[in-house]
């Protein structure tokens, strides 16, 4: 299980290839890639702030819960921080399990957590200046599905 933050753009395909390597007992790998949306020009860039050390520890704790709850063999999470341009990948989640259902569900569970409760602070830079973004009601209700 690995959790990493990076302030550089990453290539999701390379992460999938690396995650799938040498897995004789894995029947299913599910992956999710979140990209920054341009919002029709309203979002020139997204800025994500993390608390180094604290943020990785909080995400790792939930990744460990996912490992146990969905009987995963492995989890990889990579999350961007800093300034992110539209079209760039923000988050990569990969889950490995013996069978597909657990891999899919764990990926969904982890993304609901990452989108609503993970220790990030998100600022959107647009034509009218910058504003801090809070989780949407949809993000909250999505996350509550797993409680």
């Amino acid at each position: 299980m690995t959790v990493a933050l990076t302030d550089r753009p990453f290539e999701p395909g390379a992460l999938v290839t690396a995650f799938c390597a040498d897995r004789a007992e894995t029947g299913a790998v599910a992956t999710f890639v979140g990209l920054a949306r341009a919002e029709q020009g309203a979002a020139a860039a997204l800025e994500l702030e993390a608390y180094p050390g604290f943020t990785e520890a909080a995400i790792s704790e939930v990744a460990a819960q996912a490992m146990a709850r969905f009987q995963l063999q492995d989890v990889r999470i990579v999350h961007r921080v800093g300034r992110i341009a539209p079209g760039e990948a923000i988050v990569f989640v990969a889950t490995a399990a013996a069978h597909r259902r657990e891999a899919f569900e764990a990926c969904d569970f982890l993304m609901d957590y990452l989108k609503s409760r993970a220790p990030f602070w998100k600022k959107e830079h647009g034509p009218d200046g910058a504003r801090w973004i809070e989780p949407t009601d949809r993000d909250r209700t999505d996350a509550q599905r797993w409680d």
């Binding site: 999350h79 957590y113 609503s116 809070e134």
Partner: peptide, 9 residues
């Protein structure tokens, strides 16, 4: 550290 409500990523 003082942490305002977390927004998720």
């Amino acid at each position: 550290a003082f942490l305002p409500p977390m927004s998720g990523g």
